[in-house]
Amino acid sequence: MSENKLLVTFSPHIRDSVQTDKIMLNVIYALIPAIAVSIYYFGFFALKTYILTIIFTLAFEALFLKIRGRRITLDDNSALVTAILLAMNLPPASPWWLILIGSFIAIVVGKQVFGGLGQNPFNPALVARVFLLISWPAQMTSWIKPTPIIENFNFDSVSAATPLSQAKTELISNGKILTEFSDASAYFLGNIGGSLGEISAIALILGGLYLIYKKIISWHIPVSYLISFLLIVIPYWLFFPDKSLSPFIHLFTGGLMLGVFFMATDMVTSPITKKGQIIFGVGCGVLTAVIRLFGGYPEGVSFAILLMNAFVPLIDYYIRPKSLGEAEKV
């Protein structure tokens, strides 16, 4: 007579009715305030970038699922979320060919070559952003001045530097930061130059709080990311005020809020356990601060998150819950 054996596995053991498409829809809902702000300040340029990115990304997703002989699953909304996040990592006036290449890299190189949804080790949108930044730095750092859509209905653009890029340029040229950025409201409301997803801190914070409220993400990564980041930036600013922007500017400019709430918390590419998420968040915060303060790039969020993505399997291996039915070690 054969014995029935129980399979001892790691948690979680509770099934939930929440499906991928609903989770992704909630992420899209959370991004709506930031999308609206970017369209308000960049008008036609923002709309063009969002529309082209969505079209190209969904097309590549469907094409390569077809090539692989898999069912076309655009209705799970994962490719749509990748498209929006990629668009938010691009300059408003990005040329169409840059968007096309970025969409290909995000879907094919960042996702499909690893087996598709749930199997990619790196955030697809960030893979595309870093690839484009390294390959075409001029196009990826061509910022335009934000102009409220109600004040400007033409398609002309005026160049404008971001606070982080301007400070980095002055630091490299003069050994100190000469410009003072005093308009705090601009950082919150979005009236600054930058990529589509980094101009309004308040819009991104609201979206992030919505995701935490809906339990799509937990607080562990965002809080540990921000605290570890500030623990490096604040002392450095206190000791070297002429070589660093204030912590306030560091906190609310650049891609930090987008990365903290929407990129680092990606379920596929972040740790499973709460302790692992805290370690992951601390790593992201430390790397972001180090790259911003001492690296050649003014922004470090994308590089930091991708580097920590590579450590996720190791974190999950060493920081994992006890197996169901496992006895305590004496």
Rank of each mutant, 00 (worst) to 15 (best):
L230W: 10
I232L: 15
I23C: 02
N4I: 14
L133V: 07
A167D: 08
L80W: 08
K215P: 01
P321E: 05
G259P: 12
L211I: 01
S182P: 00
A138W: 01
M267P: 07
I55N: 06
N4M: 11
G254T: 10
L31K: 07
D156W: 03
A327G: 00
Y297T: 13
N154L: 03
I105S: 11
W143S: 11
S200D: 09
D16R: 08
I107C: 08
T273M: 01
G193T: 03
V260K: 07
S94C: 08
P321R: 11
N120G: 01
N309D: 09
I149V: 14
G283D: 10
I28G: 02
T265E: 04
S195W: 00
E198Q: 13
I32V: 15
L206Y: 03
I249Y: 05
F280L: 08
T179M: 07
V158R: 01
A125K: 03
F155L: 15
L58F: 00
L231A: 09
E151F: 14
G295N: 10
V312L: 07
T179Q: 03
F153D: 13
L47E: 03
A184M: 04
S302G: 06
S135T: 13
I84G: 12
I32Q: 12
I28Q: 15
Y225H: 12
L314E: 04
L251E: 08
R70F: 06
A289W: 07
Y236A: 11
T49H: 01
K215N: 08
G175Y: 08
T57D: 07
A161N: 14
L231V: 15
A201S: 15
M267Q: 09
I272C: 00
N309F: 06
N154M: 00
M1E: 10
G43C: 05
S2R: 03
M1T: 14
L209V: 14
T269V: 02
E151C: 02
Q139A: 15
M140Y: 06
Q112R: 01
P321S: 09
G197T: 12
G194I: 10
G296H: 05
D76Y: 07
L47F: 13
F10Q: 14
T53S: 14
A87S: 15
G69R: 08
K66I: 10
I150G: 00
I134A: 15
V268W: 00
L245G: 01
L189S: 11
P148N: 04
F261C: 06
D266S: 00
D242R: 06
T273F: 04
P146E: 07
L287K: 06
S17P: 00
P92Q: 06
L293M: 02
L206A: 13
Y40V: 10
D21C: 02
